[in-house]
Design a protein around this nucleic acid. Structure first.
Lengths: 404, 404
DNA sequence: AATTATTTTCTCGACAGTCGAGAAAATGAA
DNA sequence: TTCATTTTCTCGACTGTCGAGAAAATAATT
């Protein structure tokens, strides 16, 4: 159902518009804001005055020189308006970063995960401690942190910030909002890792001048398989989601997956799946907990030298991906696919299988195969996605609550 | 990107809100509108006065009696504000209906499709002629028709009203907007048939008092397989789409599909797929153009008597559906599934296969199987979906253009 | 050095819209 | 006939956007 609208909502929307423009560009003058947003000059004055009084914006000290006429004064987000904590959880390390409202990195450290102690309880304790440490190192009060943005692989409920299923904790749920609930006033956000990659790539694509961005998919290859989809809705909003692609059904022949089901895409295209196929281990053996990359490098080397089973393993992995992508395109729409993650080192070995898997479907026969490109540096993209998403959420919050 | 807002847009949004409330309820008094929409009484006065002047609304002649105090006056859409034409294209007939702005059916006739003359050109001529006939029978001027809403099975581009792929015309495209472009000022809308079923079911679910509707899927079983998905987006808008489910890849074993690809869901679960499996015809034979329902009834009867291959055929069909649904749920979210179409007569025979196909996936193991229910009377649902969608679009248009 | 041209920013009044409060209207009951 | 009750309508206050033009600040010109 639609919801009622009022003049205050108009201001909220337009404030958000100004903040978004400023976020994209870094700093803009009065006239540039007006041109960018389409708002009248008088309206821009009203909004910037309000935001300046609230301490969100400030006039930049360096002014641009040159040209005649009254010099422009640049508005820019006030870096000390607040702070953001980003936590990247991966299978081996957890990375904690402190960022200011302007988007610049202030501090960062990694904690290596202790593989002996399993379960969410010790992890939760370490997590809360690490956040405190991040504050202390920068002598920052807890309430200056406006948002804590967390990412992990796996299935996530972004509304409530609960981790529903993850490669690390399995079905043990982890409720990050509850973890920080009484002490922290910060907004707690939890996102799937590959969703953030899609978010970052979509933001990059939108910044390109040629425009016309509609949709894009990001696939992360590694021990597990992730998918993020970013699509522009009719209303112009960017709609990002992380479907459960890795454990979508591929074919029973893919064998036992570590999630307990049979035939997941991951069981064929994840690192342990490739290993299993290459060594001709029966497909119903319980998957290896962890596969060192060196191990896979060896298989890849022998595949490149023409070893039959090694090549077959990568081809089967590609086939699972290709079929899965074709199904994804059938259910959404044709869109470019960006492949990322540690598995891209074997992309050349998988590509023939991917293409074969794609070609089988009607969708691809009708509309053509999607563009597939490799996006290296997954970690940077995840971090960019964090910034994009968390700072955007903070901006939306500012616009919503106004100066009050 | 967000788009700029203004006070006029607020009025537009609130007018749409009033029209939607009135559309749902049929007629409402001033106070009821205010309660329903959350708008202040004064605002309701302003909006209804404007719409009344524009001839969209009128005060109903019968007033409700009883109770003391000033009697309520009911507002209702003016039936003669404009008209709507609904065209349902199915494989054997094309049904033309004339509806007024109040949503009541004024006239209807069917044209049986001539199976001898193939191709879009003769069809297009017959289509345009039939529309003219519909006007003449009710002595209606062409410009009184505000929208022409068309439905067909197959792949549709709803933005441009082009039919991209259909069971009847194959890859021959059909551009309905261009067909009526110069002569008709009506808005031309083209929707996938099962999308409309999903739209109608979602509207029903939303009207239920318990509320909390999130998403739903409709699957149509017949010669071909259709899927419609309705989901409520964060912004509260209903987002309806018709993914290419019937030709999503199931498994190569499903055999040759009439679309030319191998392994589509339809090739296993469509009527001709079931026929082929039951008679053990090689899976790469070109599918029958048309399968009479009597033929399938016979197979179903022998399956119910325990005939092995007949039972197997339906089970395989169910398996294809179950796997497909599980993949759909992996890519979207858990949601109830409504099954409709002529194939529901065999639903009991397919259900075991469906359940087996669902149970294989991690998604279902984790979140449980979706509720599956049978929705008879597909044609009525399609028609309701037409009304819901087309009258809603007309209302949105009225709100957008205002009185001007 | 003073003036002029140019560009940017700011300010003012007009206009569109929503809202709350209370007046006006319309009816049944006393 | 008067009073109570309920609904509808109207008025003034408030929030917000917009266009036009004033004010500000600088470079170029005389």
């Amino acid at each position: 159902m639609l919801t009622k609208s009022s003049t205050e909502l108009v201001r909220q929307q337009n404030s958000a518009l100004v903040l978004a423009a400023l976020r994209r560009a870094g700093n803009l003058s009065h006239t540039e804001i007006s041109a960018d947003t389409g708002l009248a000059s008088a309206t821009v004055s009203a909004i910037t005055a309000e935001l300046e009084k609230a301490g969100v914006l400030a006039k930049a000290e360096h002014q641009v020189q040159g040209g005649r006429g009254r010099p422009r004064v640049l508005f820019t987000p006030r870096r000390d308006y607040g702070h953001l904590v980003v936590v990247r959880i991966s299978s081996d390390i957890v990375q904690y970063s402190l960022i200011d409202y302007g988007g610049t990195l202030l501090d960062r450290f990694d904690e290596t995960r202790n593989h002996d102690e399993r379960g969410t309880v010790p992890f939760a304790r370490a997590f809360v401690d690490a956040l405190e440490r991040l504050l202390q190192r920068s002598r920052l009060e807890r309430d200056r942190v406006l948002a804590v943005s967390i990412s992990s692989k796996g299935l996530v409920d972004s509304d409530t910030a609960r981790l529903l299923w993850s490669p690390v904790f399995g079905r043990e749920e982890l409720d990050f909002a509850a973890l920080l609930a009484p002490q922290w006033r910060a907004k707690v956000m939890l996102s799937n890792e590959t969703l953030l990659v899609a978010q970052a790539l979509a933001a990059q694509a939108e910044r390109k001048p040629e425009g016309g961005f509609r949709a894009l998919a990001a696939i992360s290859l590694g021990h597990s398989i992730g998918l993020g989809v970013a699509r522009k809705s009719q209303s112009g909003e960017m709609d990002v989601s992380a479907p459960n692609f890795g454990h979508m059904l591929h074919a029973p022949s893919a064998g036992l997956c570590r999630c307990g089901a049979y035939g997941c895409i991951e069981a064929a295209a994840g690192f342990y799946g490739i290993l299993r196929a290459a060594f001709e281990v029966p497909a119903d053996t319980i998957p290896a907990k962890f596969v060192p990359v060196a191990e896979l490098d060896k298989i890849a080397a022998s595949a490149r030298q023409g070893h039959r089973m090694a090549g077959y393993a990568f081809r089967q992995a590609g086939l699972a991906l290709g079929n899965g992508i074709s199904r994804m395109l059938s259910l959404y729409e044709r869109m470019p696919v960006h492949v990322t993650g540690p598995g891209i080192r074997y992309f050349d070995l998988m590509l023939p299988g991917i293409e074969e898997g794609l070609a089988q479907s009607m969708q691809v026969r009708l509309q053509g195969a999607p563009e597939i490109s490799v996006a290296p540096d997954e970690q940077r993209l995840v971090f960019e996605g964090h910034l994009e998403r968390a700072l955007g959420a903070i901006d939306a919050d500012i616009a919503a609550t106004g100066t009050s």
